[in-house]
Design a protein around this nucleic acid. Structure first.
Lengths: 140, 140
DNA sequence: CCGTTTTTGCAATGCGGTTGCATGTTTTAT
DNA sequence: ATAAAACATGCAACCGCATTGCAAAAACGG
């Protein structure tokens, strides 16, 4: 993807597009799965982990990316679609592969919403299906 | 609950009922919400945290309790119903309150299961609704 | 009772996440 | 253009939770 497009994505969310933020965003977009902070650190060897951390926190607070608690112990992050506002109704299902430990966004699958007992207010939903992904099935 | 009953619960899952395991199980059953390791450490001041940790791991591997990734950063644990085998079909919804940071088992609400694309094998599902619990609504 | 196995406590470690501070860069005001 | 202010980055240290190694203590089996 061209840097120009990355700049647009950042500015559309009100984030100043510094060189490093472009690197972080590019790394996230190029991954076929949701990435952890340590994955980003590995892919961006020249960038300090605190800088990556702060970029990710900034992206999160501007709803450019969303976080996923997949039960692996560390949070994973993935870029939201351009028109996403991270409301409960527009969340999608995530899949965590217990073999390769990758987490995938199943953007085509909205999370099912259950009817909660009275008194509960819903802000968001974390729906993670755990199992084996297609690629790991084959390898055996 | 009488110690006798606790012993039964442990033995039903093939766990030798030591004094400390009874304490841990009792603390978990007496809580109205899923507990973290640090909560157990606070409630069982006399017991070392590594001992608590090992008891919890033992309970987990024998399906006496289940773990919940609620996105708070630390795992929470709750006792399973007596007849539970922790299969995907018998899982329930969990609710995480963003104010008091407690996680509740909504045992009456089975987790909804989405139809995954071909190639994915499902082992379990982590379904956590995030929001405000009834008690925290009132306090304001 | 004695030797073996299991359980527990203590201390240390690992790891992911987070922060304080100094430096470097960009922006703003004059 | 220059000085001041605001912001971004790197480095090192720190935090909390999870986990492990090891030795002492307790439970068990003969």
């Amino acid at each position: 993807m061209k840097n120009e497009q990355l700049v647009e994505k950042l500015e559309a969310r009100g984030i100043k597009p510094t060189a490093i933020r472009l690197l972080v965003l590019r790394a996230m977009l190029e991954s076929d799965h949701a990435v952890s902070l340590s994955e980003l650190e590995d892919r961006l060897e020249t960038v300090d982990k605190s800088t990556i951390f702060r970029a990710v926190m900034l992206f999160l607070s501007h709803h450019l990316i969303h976080g996923i608690a997949d039960g692996s112990g560390m949070l994973k992050y993935a870029v939201c679609s351009d028109d996403c506002h991270c409301e409960a109704s527009e969340l999608h299902t995530h899949f965590y592969c217990e073999k390769c430990r990758k987490t995938f966004c199943l953007t085509g699958l909205p999370v099912p919403i259950v009817q909660l007992p009275v008194g509960f207010t819903v802000n968001s939903v974390n729906y993670v299906v755990r199992g084996i992904c297609p690629e790991c099935q084959e390898v055996e």
